[in-house]
Design a protein around this nucleic acid. Structure first.
Lengths: 124, 124, 124, 124
DNA sequence: GTGGTCTAGACCACC
DNA sequence: GTGGTCTAGACCACT
């Protein structure tokens, strides 16, 4: 949890879960930690966790089953095969290493990616 | 301006300016558009623009000269040579193209980069 | 507010606003009472009101403008002309009067309507 | 069973049974399906069914006879003659057909009925 | 002064 | 024990 970032905690939680699903760390059908477990581990308020879960349910990523827990929806999941994903990941890590040696910090790299993505869109 | 993102408008403005400086689109000494011009172009409240400029001044990125405008500070700027930057940029765009063809969307790529950066930190 | 009905207060509020829009009592562009005004008038908690407004925003009925208030969305509105609506309304009131004289109470009539609607669907 | 409606399942069951009695589909002395049968047919938890039956017994609508099942109480039943009821029913269906052709959906009609009933009360 | 979020503690419905 | 709601009071971002 990054208190200084200006991003509300419930949204940070949403991003973390959503990214975990995107990266294949959480697969369809997996059960998420209980709201109370997250509270115990991270210190945020239970309502914050429940709000994040509920928003992700509306977004179609999670499925809440009364009395039994919160699960990753079957329809949600990685858009690409695991093999391709790890290869892309290695290439990116390589690039990160080079950029780091050139003196760029994390924010620089994120800015470069945003710019590259924006250029891709404008090409469309 | 992304109204639904949960990030306060003044912070979105800060990011845009800061990234423009990081990427070399704005260089030390460049004059930024007047608050009124930004209002006319984007529709946000003038206070929001002024708050973003003020925060960036405190962060050491901008310099406000009474009566003449807001400028990029001389000490601020890209941390790497322009040549290296464009090369990294091309490599990244290449990677983006491949990832796009593999079916990944923008958010997937941002998640991959975040994961790669987090792994780099843990290596330290 | 009906405390005994088993329906959560925020949902009762949602229904009231939504029905007011359906019946033309609230038209697109109209400004809804402030959350604090509703609190003063009805005694429910401010969060309850805000949750109702927010859910109606997600449902596409309302539009929340930071700092200026909550408004009925332009795209939301009555599905039929006002003239037709008042005529249907008068016919219904007539029917209600007859049913009332026949000894039916409000719940009886709602049950009859539900049954009639269900039969319409099964005809489709 | 409507999972998204916000109304607790046991209350939805209560309404269904009570309305069936109101409309004459269930008459005094009729035997209701066993809790297990309802479970098999609808998938809700057995406790939910039993709670609904128990509440309806307290409300004076049902009568539980140990070992033989659950029955509609003799004192419960339609408040009007069957003849009048079917006539009112036909008039309502007529109205529903007209309203449907005018572009109103089910929720619109329920809102109109609620408004008509509220106006009747205020006349008293 | 507008809506929005965070925290805290209590109670409820469901499994 | 699971998620869900209500209430209460404080603080923040935006107009």
């Amino acid at each position: 949890m990054d208190r200084a970032g200006g991003m509300p905690p419930y949204r940070q939680l949403m991003l973390q879960v959503r990214d975990a699903v995107r990266l294949g760390w959480l697969k369809p059908g997996d059960r998420l930690p209980t709201a109370r477990e997250v509270v115990a581990a991270s210190g945020v308020n239970q309502h914050t966790v429940l709000k994040a879960y509920r928003e992700l349910e509306l977004a179609g990523v999670l499925e809440v089953r009364q009395g039994s827990g919160t699960f990753v929806k079957d329809s949600a999941g990685t858009s690409a095969g695991a093999g391709v994903l790890t290869e892309l990941q290695q290439q990116l890590e390589n690039w990160v290493r080079i950029a780091h040696q050139a003196g760029l910090d994390d924010e620089d790299m994120k800015a470069l990616l945003s710019a590259a993505l924006a250029r891709k869109v404008s090409k469309k």
